[in-house]
């Protein structure tokens, strides 16, 4: 997995974070060091090893499909940055 450095513009775009030029430079350097350290994993033989997503095998949890009381709309909207008529206000997304 020899890394050739993070393409910071590409990844920041995927992550939807606007970075300053100073941040781009600093993070590239710091994350380069971290990735170099992580490269040690190249030395581990994982042939035939199953990946672990959770420490314990989890089974699907089923429940009856019945309606139960949920948080009232006005409570759910209390932390909304902008709300009107029981809805969250956002910038226009379609012309």
């Amino acid at each position: 997995m020899a890394h050739d450095g993070i393409d910071i513009d590409y990844v920041a775009n995927l992550a939807r974070i606007a970075l300053t030029d100073e941040e781009k430079e600093r993070f590239s350097g710091q994350l380069g060091q971290v990735l170099e350290y992580i490269e040690k994993l190249d030395t581990v033989d994982v042939s035939g090893v199953e990946p672990t997503a959770h420490a314990f095998p989890l089974e699907n949890v089923w429940r009856d499909d019945k309606a139960e009381p949920a948080m009232p709309v006005e409570v759910a909207l209390k932390n909304a940055p902008a709300a009107r008529q029981n809805m969250i206000v956002v910038p226009k997304v379609v012309e």
């Binding site: 997995m1 994993l41 581990v44 090893v49 990946p51």
Partner: peptide, 19 residues
């Protein structure tokens, strides 16, 4: 997690996690 790196990093890490 990005395209082209998933197997090399994330999947590999999950396998070493097993070990």
């Amino acid at each position: 997690l990005s395209s082209g790196y998933y197997d090399a990093y994330y999947l590999k890490a999950q396998k070493v996690r097993t070990l």
